[in-house]
Design a binder for these strands. Sequence first.
DNA 1: CCACAAGTTGACCGATGGGGTCAGTTTATC
DNA 2: GATAAACTGACCCCATCGGTCAACTTGTGG
Lengths: 224, 224
Amino acid sequence: MTDELAAPTPAEREPVEPELVESESGRSESGKPQSGKPRMRADAKRNTEQIRRAAIDAFRGRGLAVPLEDVAKAAGVSKATVFNRFGGRIGLIEAVIEELVAAELYAIVDHARTIANAGERIAYYLAAIRELQYRQPAVNDVLLQMYPESQQLMAICHVAGEFNAELIAAGHASGELRAEFRTDDLEALVHDSALALKYGTRPPVADYDRRTTFLLDGIRRPRE
Amino acid sequence: MTDELAAPTPAEREPVEPELVESESGRSESGKPQSGKPRMRADAKRNTEQIRRAAIDAFRGRGLAVPLEDVAKAAGVSKATVFNRFGGRIGLIEAVIEELVAAELYAIVDHARTIANAGERIAYYLAAIRELQYRQPAVNDVLLQMYPESQQLMAICHVAGEFNAELIAAGHASGELRAEFRTDDLEALVHDSALALKYGTRPPVADYDRRTTFLLDGIRRPRE
DNA sequence: CCACAAGTTGACCGATGGGGTCAGTTTATC
DNA sequence: GATAAACTGACCCCATCGGTCAACTTGTGG
């Protein structure tokens, strides 16, 4: 599977999308023999994985806009090799975004869905998503759709967006969420956090968490 | 007075600060004759005012980062003339920031101070400052201290910062503000708004105002 | 071991957006 | 009319980073 997910070789670079689609189809169809000879040299395979790991580390600490030169250096290869193996930044993002962002984000969504009480579900989700945003700059790049050419990035946003709507509906149905607080308000709230973290100074964690509390209290339905 | 506040002429450009200081001192000391011959040609004087007005318009719609080329074009002069008359962006900001930002911001502060009830004062101030931020991109550049070399800009921030502390103290003394909400929380709140407006998409005004309400409700002391 | 294609790379190019400069020209003033 | 103030079109520079390519290196199969 790693072979198919690796960036196309230089010869295949132009039809990047068709190649990936083709690989996906091939993987989806059972019965395809995996015993064929490897399509990538050992050094290329090794480099690809090193670049992938270096990208995950770099993106994790500094977000998706890290200079590719830095990723290459951390992987011990030249920048041109990053282009050769992954086609560029988008290809690199596509290769790591599942492990880097989607896994954790979807885990939060999945866990939230197990919480029966709507008010608690919203409180859990908002706190968890904000904590993830605080800790993971790449998450903010995703939520802000900084690289819309990345299909996987956009798919993650789509999932998060749908869950926002789900949360709001449940909160209103249960009466625990103030009536005027809408899906786009929740989206703006998360989006503004992303912008503040991306372009501002990250505050001490205690301050940040305290402010999550204020936000939550501002969207609860007042008790009569 | 406009003459003294105009940018130095090319010959005086290097000692920009001393010249301004000197002009300030001269103005402060009474008795200096104002009947002397003008120190600027009529065209220079006219251009300086045109640039000033063009800058106010441009900064008002798009913030302090507007390309100087755009300001020059709107003023009907060359970019070099902007440099000649104002020394550059900082000089231009210094020439307009009082009228552009300080006047309105200080009016909000002054009016807030007339409100006796602390809770209402905070509500008024937060709504008014957020409304100003929404309407005036330049205000966000000021609050974000985008140009720290501008003394007047930094002075405005200082005033706003002191008023934040005043507000918080009054809110706590009256018991209408939740105890954990601190000065730096208020500053972060305003700051985050500035970042969201500067780097994000400006939402419809109704949505924005609604969100001001949520913020306010999140910082009020809960009623027992 | 050799041939050869895959794979890598150091050096370089180009884009971007706008700040800033200057020699030549124009204009206001005395 | 002389002259200094003022203006300007053309150009330079910057800093960063995405992207390319001819030359070189390396892995693989026969």
